[in-house]
Write a protein that binds this DNA or RNA. Structure first.
Length: 243
DNA sequence: AACCCCGCCAACCGCTATCAC
DNA sequence: AGTGATAGCGGTTGGCGGGGT
């Protein structure tokens, strides 16, 4: 059984948006705010499907969009996040202010995939291309969780709470938590005779990030990591902020 | 100048998740 | 609990522009 169409296709425009349509959409949202996309086109005097309006606003017209080239810092962060989250573009976009899921998805497919391939890394598994195939762990959700297993992937410790029933299907009934990179307690970093620790942001190579809270960084939010929302050093995947 | 190829990216499509009744 | 409506997500498509021949 298919879904009913979100709008009457016979009476809607498709394809590229005109300046006038953009202006109408911006003016309407400025006056009335976002929400109720289905009724928005009619109210705004647009011959567009609500879905199309939403996409246009979110991906192109929103005033907080950054636009422009991605920085090297953003590149690396996207790679790291993708290695953890896979193609969860909206989650990845949620950690890159001013970037949209569509933009990141396009950028991944056009630039980063090639970049990783040129480094000899498989963009989907984040493993060396010539490395023999290994079991791939996918992050997914579940409330039924019993056993906990830790894995170290790309510098992150991932705690898997495994269901005893579905263990052979890693995509099912997993409840994951992502913690900061594993550091041996016996190997503290020493700087100029002083012992210091490196924060998670620095471990990703973004020392000047607002998420940096190690002793080398500028922020000082006390002990424990808070990168990517990792309160108390552990990220509950379900708490990742959605757009 | 004309044609072709290819990369980029905005937009669409189909699906799932969520909510209201 | 079941159903329909709506929002949101991710994969895919297609138009456009730039570079090469």
């Amino acid at each position: 059984m298919g879904r009913s169409p979100c709008c009457e296709k016979a009476h809607t425009n498709k394809g590229a948006w005109t300046k006038e349509e953009d202006d109408r959409l911006i003016a309407y949202i400025r006056a009335h705010g976002e929400g109720c996309w289905r009724s928005l086109p009619k109210a705004a005097g647009l011959l567009r499907c609500g879905k199309s309006c939403r996409l246009r606003w979110i991906n192109y017209l929103r005033p907080d969009l950054k636009r422009g080239n991605f920085t090297e810092e953003e590149d690396e962060l996207i790679i790291k996040l993708h290695s953890l989250l896979g193609n969860k573009w909206s989650l990845i976009a949620g950690r890159l202010p001013g970037r949209t899921d569509n933009e990141i998805k396009n950028y991944w497919n056009t630039h980063i995939r090639r970049k990783l391939l040129s480094r000899g890394i498989d963009p989907s598994t984040h493993r060396p291309i010539n490395e023999p195939a290994q079991e791939v762990t996918t992050i997914s959700f579940s409330s039924a969780a019993v056993k906990v297993e830790e894995k170290i992937t790309s510098g992150f410790v991932i705690k898997e709470e495994k269901s005893p029933v579905r263990e052979r299907c890693p995509d099912l009934n997993l409840d994951l938590r992502i913690s900061p990179p594993y550091h041996h307690q016996s190997e503290p970093l020493k700087t100029g005779g002083r012992t210091s620790s490196i924060c998670f942001a620095c471990s990703l190579g973004i020392q000047n990030s607002k998420d940096c809270n190690c002793s080398n960084g500028t922020s000082s939010s006390g002990t424990g990591y808070d990168f990517l929302g990792l309160k108390n050093g552990v990220l509950d995947y379900r708490s990742l902020e959605m757009k």
